Amino acid sequence: MFFGGKKSGVGLDIGTNSLKVVELSNISKKPTLVRYGIKELPPDVIVDNHIMDPLLLTETAQGILVESSITAKKINLGIQGKYVMVKKITTDLMNDNEYNHQVRFDAQNNFPFDFEDIDIMLDYHILGKNKQDKTMDVLLIAAQAGFIDQYVDPISEANIKINSVDINIFALHNIYEKTAGIPEDEFIIFAHTGADFLLLNFVVDGHPVICRDINAIGTYQIINDMIRKLGISEDEAKKIIKGETPPPPDQTVTVSQVYGELIEEITNNISKLEDTAIRNKADKIILSGGGVFIPRIKEVIEENLKRPVEIFNPFDYIQVPEEDRENLQKIGPVLTIAAGLALRG
């Protein structure tokens, strides 16, 4: 369910405030952008990863495909939230058939779900085997079926077939690996900031070792704080975040404080988790998502963590139509998950 791929694909990223869609072709060789789109969701359609208004989500999904001129009837859908969990474990060496009978036992011992009363969907990926120690490393995945259904059902109601359901944190990994490349001997931290969440993926020697989906200060709260503290409109706040408009001269300190809360949350979470990784110092940190538009976020995180920081725009590596290049330089990092989902084919 969570792994696969073909020659072309469409990825749909369902965020708290907006839907993002990307269609790619030639994904098995050199990914090429076909179409893309972003469409805002009405307020409170999604609250804390729960779909509060399925009908509005259905209508918005239909709308983004029409407005983006995407006619494909199969899409790859991404999910995230506290009801989706990923963990790297080490278990006894066995073949796939044997582990199919073992996976539920391992999941029950590693995830805080009620396996007796709730339908839990499981998947796994064997990362490597150590024949000498008779052990193997496994990436274990568990998700509540009802949580997945609340995303799948409204999209299906839009007459869209779901080709695959993937986890957003894997989509980040896949798009970077396919385009920029992940060296097998490096420790890389991926940090993707959304409207109200922070996705962290710690990758060592090409494999995820720590994956976290954290409810955090995001761009949504920053916008609301600016509206409240500066007395400006939502559009004005968004332009300040993107660097399109400078903050009011007498409010520069206030704006810096608002930015600082998000940057501090990112650095604190990275520092805390980095200490538990196999290696205790990352070679670099990769930023994506809406938070990358915050002025000097790259430089401040570099100063705080003493690690090289890179802002990732997948369209720096994907072939794009010339007429879209300028716009994608501005919004590309926001489409990172959707592009990663599209790679599933």
Rank of each mutant, 00 (worst) to 15 (best):
F202A: 14
V204M: 10
Y151I: 10
K161I: 02
E177Y: 08
E184T: 09
L199S: 15
V203W: 04
D185E: 12
N201H: 13
A171L: 00
I182N: 08
D196L: 11
P154R: 01
F190W: 13
V203G: 05
N174D: 12
E157C: 05
F202H: 11
D153C: 05
G194I: 05
A195H: 05
L172T: 07
H173I: 10
D196N: 15
I167T: 02
I175F: 02
P154A: 03
L198N: 07
N159A: 11
H173P: 01
D153G: 01
N168H: 07
F202I: 08
A191C: 08
D185C: 00
I155S: 04
I155A: 11
I167D: 02
P154T: 00
I189L: 12
N201Q: 04
I167V: 15
N168D: 13
P183S: 12
N159T: 11
A195N: 04
D166Q: 15
H173R: 14
I175M: 02
F190Q: 09
D196W: 05
A191S: 03
V203D: 02
A195K: 02
P183C: 10
I162P: 03
S156F: 07
L200M: 03
F170G: 08
E186V: 01
H192F: 03
N168P: 02
V152T: 12
H173C: 04
L198G: 05
F197H: 14
V152N: 06
I167Q: 07
D153P: 01
P154V: 05
E157T: 06
N163Y: 11
E186D: 11
I169E: 12
D185T: 07
Y151S: 12
G181F: 03
V204D: 13
A171K: 02
H192R: 06
P154Y: 01
S164P: 00
I167L: 11
I155Y: 07
I162H: 03
D166M: 02
D166P: 12
T179N: 00
N168G: 00
I162Q: 03
H192W: 01
Y176V: 15
T193Q: 09
A195C: 06
F202Y: 09
D196A: 15
N174L: 09
G181N: 03
D153W: 00
N201S: 13
Y151P: 09
N168S: 02
H192V: 01
I160K: 12
I189V: 15
E184Q: 14
I162N: 00
N201A: 10
N174R: 15
A195W: 05
N174E: 06
Y176E: 04
I155T: 01
L200Q: 12
N159S: 15
D153E: 08
N201F: 04
E186Y: 00
E184V: 06
F190Y: 14
A180L: 14
V204N: 14
E177D: 15
I189S: 05
L198C: 03
N159Q: 14
H173S: 03
I188S: 08
F190K: 12
V203C: 01
I160S: 07
L199D: 13
